[in-house]
Amino acid sequence: MTQSVSARKGSGDWLREALPKIVLSPSLALVLIFVYGFIFFTFYLSFTDSRLLPSFGWVGAENYDKLFSLRAWDIAVNNLLVFGGLYILICCALGLGLAILLDQKIRSEGFIRTIYLYPMALSFIVTGTAWKWFLDPGIGLEAVVQSWGFTSFEFDWIKNRDMAIYTIVIAAVWQTSGFVMAMFLAGLRGIDNEVLKAAQIDGASNWALYRRIVIPQLRPAFMSAFVVLAHMAIKSYDLVIALTNGGPGRATELPATFMYSYTFTRNQMGIGAASATIMLMTIAAIIVPYLWSELREKK
């Protein structure tokens, strides 16, 4: 039911007519100023010579030129591609796999689901702390396995420049994959059982059933999962700070940490603003089409 009650003019009663809009307007004003006004402000700063403080000397695209020639930014973007790609891929694979397994009339399904999902309730700082020490070669997994007698066992990814980014993937997947599982499970529950029965009568094996009938119908769930995961990946900041603080060296620098350090500790606000603008545009390219289609459907 989408039709609504149209406002009625009380005999010259302007207030009554405008009341809904008046109620909505503080929120709208906040959003317009603090989201869109600020986006514009930062966008503008990215074309200025701002360093420690905002300043309004126009420098054109210089900050972008500098940004793209910075090795640190290059590393951050590459790290994001590796991290984001693996994060989305593994979360989806794991989430779908677990959802399908949980959909087989599992005893105490609710209990298992609760366990799979609880990491989502935690702060990334907590997750980062837990994994930081668990992956620490001195006291964590490596030390434990060595103490069991496997003295040659090595697991020092978190201290290893080439492998540290994968520890971010491990912790992030741990935190989010249960949620992706829940999304796919909801998708699976939404599939009409009669279609599955028909396919079985047609002689489809379980494997064919999932590959040919079920998974293609999960397209909306894949879409949502992709959008949610992609935007989380791009915004990832807390986890990196807590787990590796961008290190060792710059091995786990991501655009979000890059922006923060250039803006607030290296006093390169113009470049920081430029990097934030790039982040926003990337997210907008993913989110806007998604929101567009969702809101249009609703009409």
């Binding site: 986006i39 930062t42 905002p54 935007h231 900041y237 803006t263 934030a276 997210i283 989110i287």
Partner: peptide, 28 residues
């Protein structure tokens, strides 16, 4: 329940605000 012209756009604007990278608003 009190829809008016352009309400979906306003909602869209509010919703998009949830997804922006907050790095974009830190400085201002």
């Amino acid at each position: 329940k009190w829809r008016f012209r352009g309400d979906t756009i306003i909602f869209g604007l509010m919703l998009f605000g949830c997804f922006i990278p907050f790095q974009m608003v830190l400085i201002p």
